[in-house]
Design a protein around this nucleic acid. Structure first.
Length: 830
RNA sequence: GCCGGAAUGGCGGAACUGGCAGACGCGCGAGACUCAAAAUCUCGUGGUGCUUAGCACCGUGUGGGUUCGACCCCCUCUUCCGGCACCA
């Protein structure tokens, strides 16, 4: 008898799939299409099972959809630009390209070893000039549409390295290579994409995605875009005629409680306000200190609030009272107007700041219910809506009414108006680094900024550069790259030396897959039109905001250019959890990885895949357990032996029986369990991709078959064959190699890859009897077995007839009865 | 700090729409097979108590609430995880 040898079985079928071009898919308008996609991986060094989870889930999805009759496109490629390749270059002296492409070779080898069903003809790498050429092309179209522009913006700067640092390179506010050197904020001119133009559309689109996207991702995106309605209010600066400060507030109803105006350090008026101050020197020093911080939002938000008074006052347009103007580190230039009115009693951040600097905290809103607030007892801000007090003519109004009325009054008097703002900021795409797409513009002394003409694309990265991580960016140091004739006048020009954020690469790659070799356009709208949009997108929850928002933005822009017909790229989104070991995410740096190749060599790819899907529902984090892997290997062995044992006797028979007439009890039990399994597994796949419970159901089915052994006594070969075939088919999306082998053992020669998903038959799955629970006051007091579909009255009668229930009811009165047919009877007694 | 999640036996997890908590797997215990081992197979396995063929009570992070009935809904708190715009 043959043993199950995963290595041999897997190599055999991988070769056959390759020879048959089994996963290559071409547009076919006569067939329903399905675009199954996993998030573009960054090809880092060692591949571990944490990486494999995403692709295992995606492959099961793709294989299942193929079995359901869809024309499935399932591509794979590489997010090949980025910081780690430059770090490798610095540390090991390897060129980033060499390091990256080496990783790609290894990554692909693992993909083959795991039997992932990719159409490799569509493979792309973002560092390939044939790919990034189209990044540049899209950038130029953005420029034409005023969607790309330059402005000054803050970056992290390490004075010792003399270079810009990524947020990741800032550790505890200091440079990662100089742990004693605090990072400074520096302003430099950078390129931005005007994503805010589409803020409303990106927000509204979320409503449409509600069916196919996880609720939490929709919520996070909605909060990220952060639409808020409020008012812009102008405060005159006392003693500086014609100068005023505008603030944005969502709580104009609290304006009588304002005790200061606070500006961001970068606010354009700051210098003018401190100009005449006797404390000017001290103020300048404070401003410098505020610059000694990283530009990470997280660092800004957790930093202790500090500030200083400018010495000037602003006039509250409602009360005509003077309010001191301060500068505070917690006010962001990027949001609203870069200035706020501080209402300490009703905003926690204002409260923290004002109590620290002993500014008054007047109460102007009282809660609608509960104890009223008192000045002396105020321990924290109360930001709830309520009723206005001490607010002049508005006293007595509710917050809602006051917001409407005060906004209208501000408008009527000309010092304010209603306004909607977004938290969303424009997307900074400039990077002062080598390993990325060069931004295709040239600066000419005469003509200024000149776009590189389309026919000169791609602007290629120079090969010979020195990458040190110190000083200005490698491209800026490469004279042959920088010095270029102006395309307009032919005079001396300088190339832009910034490269693009790698998020640009991953914002449209899913379209390039659909027409990967086009050298005239990023993709042909007709070729892409058949497959687009992506039907199922799968990736980590870590990408819930940035990548998914940028990809949606790009798709809207491409739609407006007429290249695609929809603005939403991903109809359905699935976010898988992380793989943990020892409670931490698997990562090489933490030394807790389980290597993908090691896994395949020791247990086989099918076992690795099965375990990855079995250990937890795919959207949750899973803890890796080597012992549980053994359990999955045992299960596959068990199935193999089962089919091996019966294969010979059933292979020449056709599977299935027409109906249950004449079926033995054993046959009925087997067919019932099998078809119930088909129904439930199909349901798990269709609704939420719960492979873990689907696998548990297959295990139950195998257990049931074992209970019914020996099958030769009491079950016809056609029935046995049907049971084993359906089991094999259901296993195929998850452990495809062994499924192919079993399919062959059952007498098929065509290859399971072309087989259909099994059809569930209700008449086979139907139960004849069910167990119904009898409760008294919600506690279980007995169980009865009854025919399916028994009516309520009969159920109660049966329950009352139970001797045990009868005894317990003695002397008590039934006040209510609740009946759930086929499930339970609950008697409420007194 | 802000936004979003999660918490169920010794472990991973199951429980569809508010209706038998612990499916399935791991681990552990007992047994069969074997000279022996591995593999395989069978049985048992949340806790406590008792008058132990069974029965009762407790039990889904904390404390409260709604309900005939709550892992599930509402409020509170705790801990852990993800994101925070230059990691990808």
């Amino acid at each position: 008898m043959a043993e199950y040898d995963p290595q041999a079985v897997e190599a055999k079928w991988q070769k056959i799939w390759e020879e048959q071009h089994a996963f290559e898919a071409d547009a076919d308008p006569d067939r329903p299409k399905y675009y199954s996609l996993e998030m573009l991986p960054y090809p880092s060094g060692t591949l571990h099972m944490g990486h494999m989870r995403n692709y295992t889930i995606g492959d099961a999805v793709a294989r299942y959809r193929r079995m359901r009759g869809f024309n499935v496109v399932h591509p794979m490629g590489w997010d090949a630009f980025g910081l780690p390749a430059e770090n490798a270059a610095i540390q090991r002296g390897i060129h980033p390209r060499e390091w990256t492409l080496g990783n790609v070779v290894e990554f692909k080898r693992v993909c083959f070893r795991f039997g992932f069903s990719y159409d490799w003809r569509r493979e792309i790498a973002t560092c390939d000039p044939e790919y990034y050429k189209w990044n540049q092309w899209i950038f130029l179209r953005m420029l034409e549409r005023d969607l790309a522009y330059r402005k000054k913006s803050r970056v992290n700067w390490c004075p010792k390295c003399g270079t810009v640092l990524a947020n990741e390179q800032v550790v505890d506010g200091c440079c990662w290579r100089h742990e004693d050197t605090p990072v400074e904020a520096r302003e430099i001119e950078q390129w931005f994409f005007r994503i805010t133009r589409y803020a409303d559309e990106l927000l509204n689109g979320l409503d449409v995605l509600g069916d196919g996207w996880p609720e939490r991702v929709i919520t996070m995106q909605r909060n990220w875009i952060g639409k808020s309605r409020g008012a812009r209010v102008r405060f005159e600066v006392a003693g500086l005629t014609g100068k005023s400060i505008e603030v944005f507030t969502t709580r104009i109803d609290t304006i009588y409680g304002a005790s200061a105006i606070i500006l961001a350090a970068g606010h354009p008026l700051v210098q003018e306000l401190i100009a005449g101050s006797p404390n000017r020197a001290a103020a300048e020093k404070q401003l410098d200190t505020m610059k000694q911080t990283s530009v990470k939002d997280e660092d800004v938000a957790t930093a202790e609030k500090v500030g200083f008074a400018t010495g000037r006052d602003a006039v509250n347009p409602f009360t005509k009272e003077k309010l001191p103007i301060w500068v505070g580190n917690f006010v962001l230039m990027e949001y609203g107007t870069g200035a706020i009115m501080a209402v300490p009693a009703h905003d926690q951040r204002d409260f923290d700041f004002c109590t620290k600097y002993r500014l008054p905290t007047p109460i102007v809103i009282q809660p609608l219910e509960g104890a009223p607030l008192t000045d002396t007892a105020l321990k924290q801000a109360s930001s709830e809506y309520g009723k206005l007090v001490n607010s002049g003519p508005y006293t007595g109004l509710t917050s809602e009414d006051a917001i409407t009325k005060m906004t209208a009054d501000a408008d009527a008097h000309g010092f304010g108006k209603g306004e909607t703002t977004f938290r969303l900021r424009d997307w900074g795409v400039s990077r002062q680094r080598y390993w990325g797409t060069p931004i295709p513009v040239i600066y000419c002394e005469r003509d200024g900024m000149v776009p590189v003409p389309d026919d000169q694309l791609p602007v290629r990265l120079p090969e010979k550069v020195s990458i040190t991580g110190m000083g200005q960016s490698p491209l800026a140091n490469t004279a042959e790259f920088v010095n270029i004739k102006c395309p307009k006048c032919g005079g001396p020009g300088r190339r832009e030396t910034d490269t693009m954020d790698t998020f640009v690469d991953s914002s449209w790659y899913f379209l390039r897959y659909l027409d990967p070799h086009n050298d005239k356009m990023p993709f042909d709208p007709v070729a892409a039109g058949y497959w687009f949009p992506v039907d199922q997108y799968i990736g980590g929850i870590t990408h819930a905001i940035l990548h998914l928002l940028y990809a949606r933005f790009f798709t809207i822009v491409l739609r407006d250019m007429g290249l695609v017909s929809t603005g939403e790229p991903f109809t359905r989104l699935f976010c898988q959890g992380m793989v943990l070991k020892g409670g931490m995410a698997m990562s090489k740096s933490k030394g807790n990885v389980v290597g993908a190749m090691e896994m395949a060599d020791k247990y086989g790819a099918d076992t690795g895949r099965l375990y990855t899907l079995f250990a937890a529902p795919p959207e949750k984090d899973m803890e890796w357990s080597e012992q549980s892997v053994e359990g999955c290997a045992r299960f596959l062995n068990r199935v193999f032996r089962l089919v091996e044992h019966h294969g010979g006797e059933v292979r020449q028979h056709a599977a299935g029986v027409g109906d249950l007439a004449g079926a033995s009890d054993k046959e009925k039990i087997l067919l019932r369990k099998t078809h119930q399994t088909v129904r439930r597994v199909t349901h798990d796949f269709e609704t939420r991709w719960h492979f873990n419970s689907a696998i548990a159901l297959l295990m139950e089915l195998v257990n049931e078959i074992h209970v019914q052994e020996p099958l030769a006594e009491g079950a016809r070969p056609t029935v046995i064959k049907e049971v084993l075939e359906l089991l094999t088919l259901m296993l195929a999306p998850m452990s495809p190699h062994i499924a192919e082998e079993l399919w062959e053992m059952l007498g098929h020669s065509g290859g399971l890859i072309r087989a259909s998903w099994p059809q569930f038959r209700a008449e086979f799955a139907a139960e004849e009897q069910v167990e119904v629970v009898i409760q008294m006051n919600g506690k279980i007091r007995g169980k009865i077995t009854v025919d399916v579909g028994l009516d309520e009255d009969s159920l109660v009668a049966r329950a009352l007839a139970e001797p045990r229930i009868k005894g317990m009811l003695d002397g008590q009165k039934i006040v209510k009865r609740i009946v759930v047919p086929d499930k339970l009877v609950n008697l409420v007694v007194k």
